[in-house]
Design a binder for these strands. Structure first.
Length: 204
DNA sequence: CCCTGATTCGC
DNA sequence: GCGAATCAGG
């Protein structure tokens, strides 16, 4: 596979959308995430999406000064590689002012309260009285077995159902094996995806 | 162990 | 220019 204009375009788009290198590689096909990352760097768009610098000036401006000299392939000791070449600051002025302002979900209909963080939209949290007793019992049971993963520990195959109050330290994600193609484990899929029939006519 | 991006350097 | 190997880290 080669980097055709089209593929590069897809790469740029997905990267700016915050997609991971592996996700992009998977989408493109025929390339590994390493290839994607390598290309991203060559294109000079390593710091994606650009964020409000004014807001968070990132204190640690210089943090990568020396990483291992990179172990030579299979050579005893040949040349001290003139690494000094990389001295020039990488991409000083990131000119990407044209890209769209990163697609933002629009589910914040109430401009009232700015609500804070939540890096990701939380799944629906149906109130207890609209969940079937069976599903509810199942969930309570499962939540005792939750792996209690942190955000960073979630993968494509772990249940992403949040448990607890995000504002406290008693908050974690279910983490049990998720249903193929679903974001949650079996029990949580049960409460997250309810058939219309069971939700209908909840006298009120 | 799962995953992430960053970097180096032989090709 | 490309990307595997590797590093560093959540």
């Amino acid at each position: 596979m080669s980097w055709t204009d089209e593929r590069v375009e897809t790469l740029k788009r997905m990267w700016s959308e915050g997609q991971s290198a592996s996700a992009i590689a998977k989408e493109l096909g025929g390339v590994t995430r390493n290839a994607v990352i390598g290309k991203v760097h060559r294109l000079g768009l390593s710091n994606r999406g650009d964020e409000a610098e004014a807001a968070a000036p990132e204190p640690a401006a210089e943090k990568r000064a020396e990483r291992k000299p990179a172990p030579a392939r299979a050579e005893p000791a040949a040349e001290p590689a003139p690494a000094a070449a990389a001295a020039t600051d990488e991409a000083e002025a990131a000119e990407a002012a044209e890209a769209e302002p990163a697609a933002q979900p629009v589910f914040t209909p109430v401009p009232r309260r700015p609500i804070v963080p939540a890096g990701q939209p939380l799944p629906p949290q149906p109130s207890a009285n609209e969940i079937s007793p069976e599903a509810l019992a199942s969930v309570r049971e499962v939540e005792k077995k939750a792996r209690k993963l942190t955000l960073m520990e979630l993968t494509e195959r772990t249940c992403k159902w949040p448990i607890g109050d995000p504002a406290t330290d008693r908050f974690w994600f279910c983490g049990l094996p998720s249903q193929a193609g679903k974001p949650y484990c079996e029990a949580h899929v049960g409460v997250a995806f309810q058939p219309m029939s069971s939700r209908r006519d909840r006298r009120r």
